[in-house]
Design a protein around this nucleic acid. Structure first.
Lengths: 101, 101
DNA sequence: CGTGTAAGGAATTCTGACACG
DNA sequence: CGTGTAAGGAATTCTGACACG
């Protein structure tokens, strides 16, 4: 449904306007592996609305004094937890209904 | 809520990809007063997701052989009808509850 | 009428680097 | 570490025009 938000369609200038961050900051957060824009054939970045939300969160943390490295670690931890929950749920289902074959 | 769709944030190249229309066609439909992108200070166009939907409708009509002039007339007619309904509703409300003062 | 295209210029974006603190 | 900035080049976009049918 709301694929708008995850579609990579925004230029860095638009993202800069919407987040009030400088293009330098946006590119730096990418360098630190916090966001992952796509690229056109020509090499220009393309962001999504989800990226904008994420950038705003990042900016708030940076303002609090949290370092990008730690933000990255936290992010990775969340991913691992999600992975764990996903597997857990899958295990539950398999236990109850068995594997498809 | 869904302000995403009306926000003018897309470049013409992205719109071209999403609509499968050429940039030439997109600019031409603007020339014919069918769509109204915003402009940056520098003069580059900015479109919304709503514009994309509108462009797809336009393209379908053009394929059917309808001329842009007629599409424009139909569009204006709709606007007048909406205006009429709006005033009608307002009149109903005023008749029941009187004017604010 | 609707669309393609080559042309020349301007706006936008990119990278790597130096600076500061 | 996080961010600003000047530098040079490449990608993107713009307009007005000519072409075709």
């Amino acid at each position: 449904m709301e694929e708008y938000k995850s579609k990579k369609v925004l230029t860095i200038s638009v993202v800069s306007e919407l987040t009030y961050l400088s293009e330098r900051q946006i590119r730096y957060y990418e360098e630190r592996k916090l966001i992952f824009p796509e690229r056109t054939k020509g090499g220009t970045r393309r962001y999504s609305f989800d990226d904008i939300e994420k950038l705003i969160e990042i900016a708030q943390k940076v303002e609090k004094g949290i370092q990008t490295f730690d933000i990255r670690q936290e992010e990775k931890k969340k991913e691992r937890e999600n992975e764990w929950h996903r597997k857990m749920l899958q295990g539950q289902l398999n236990a109850q209904f068995g594997y498809k074959r």
